[in-house]
């Protein structure tokens, strides 16, 4: 199994293909499987050297108790980049993975050549999105669990979600497993390992990635948002305030385009990576 030890934390990764470096960064509560189950990894690897990894606390990587802010995870990415001997890379980030990508671009601009940001919410731009509790990323999960007799607060609280999953009784697990679709159940059942960490709170801290610092990103950025995104104000901000940002839209998707509109998601990621790579060459 490919693992790399980064100052005492072991990270699981895969690398495939040849050419300019691309790093795929999954969302919080997800893992690198998203890139395999959607064929993004193999598709992008036809033209690039692709590295996908499990962020700390996720997938098969180690689960340290702390260190889950975007600043912490950008440090992980910087160390991974160095340990694997990557060249300046194009980063593709999904949701919080995109926040990590931007934070890395701010902290380590020399290792980032361009960014494809897919449907992120930035804690440092939370003032632009005052109705986060109504965002599908939280509301759909909460509604499904409440319907199955699990009490979760209305306000977004990932720490409560992780602890709830870890403390489900066998009867509750059976009931939820029966009523949820299999993909949602598999996603939910993996959250247990985050219950003893600070992840749920950390990912909602700006951790230094303020509005001002986000605007310092000079690399070319693609703001790829879903047609039904909950973060329209963030999308507008990125397109208006970043000096080199273009937007694009995934039809019919709502934060999980790899599941909701896989064909267009893969096509748009590939298309924009090609364009970013070509812009370096020209």
């Amino acid at each position: 199994m490919p693992f790399v030890d980064l100052e005492g934390v072991r990270f699981h990764y895969q690398q495939k293909g040849r050419g300019e470096d691309v790093v795929l960064i999954h969302a919080v509560t997800s893992n690198m499987a998203i890139w395999l189950f959607t064929n993004v990894l193999d598709t992008v690897a036809e033209e690039f050297r692709v590295t996908a990894y499990d962020m700390r606390g996720h997938g098969a990587s180690d689960v340290p108790a702390t260190g889950y802010t975007s600043a912490d995870m950008a440090q992980d990415l910087g160390k991974l980049h160095a340990a694997l001997g990557l060249r300046p890379a194009l980063l593709v980030g999904h949701s919080f993975g995109a926040v990590v990508a931007v934070h890395a671009a701010v902290l380590f601009p020399e290792i980032v050549r361009g960014l494809v940001l897919y449907d992120p919410f930035f804690p440092g731009l939370a003032h632009l999105e005052p109705n986060l509790a109504e965002a599908s990323v939280w509301k759909d999960v909460r509604d499904a669990l409440v319907e199955n007799g699990v009490n979760l607060p209305k306000e977004v609280n990932f720490t409560a979600l992780f602890r709830m999953v870890a403390e489900l009784s066998p009867d509750q697990r059976d009931r939820i497993r029966t009523n949820l679709d299999p993909t949602s159940w598999r996603w939910l059942s993996q959250l247990t390992q985050l219950a003893a960490t600070t992840c749920g709170d950390d990912v909602f801290r700006a951790a230094g990635l303020t509005e001002e610092r986000i605007c310092q990103v000079r690399q070319p950025v693609i703001a790829l948002y879903d047609e039904q995104t909950s973060f329209e104000a963030t999308r507008r901000f990125l397109q208006e305030k970043l000096p080199n940002c273009r937007g694009d839209t995934i039809p019919g998707a709502k934060h999980v385009a790899p599941l909701q509109n896989r064909t267009d998601f893969v096509h748009l990621v590939q298309k924009h990576l090609r364009a970013l790579a070509a812009s370096h060459d020209s």
Partner: peptide
Amino acid sequence: VSIDAVLLAEA
């Protein structure tokens, strides 16, 4: 779970 499919592929 999903990551097991990745690990199985590697195995």
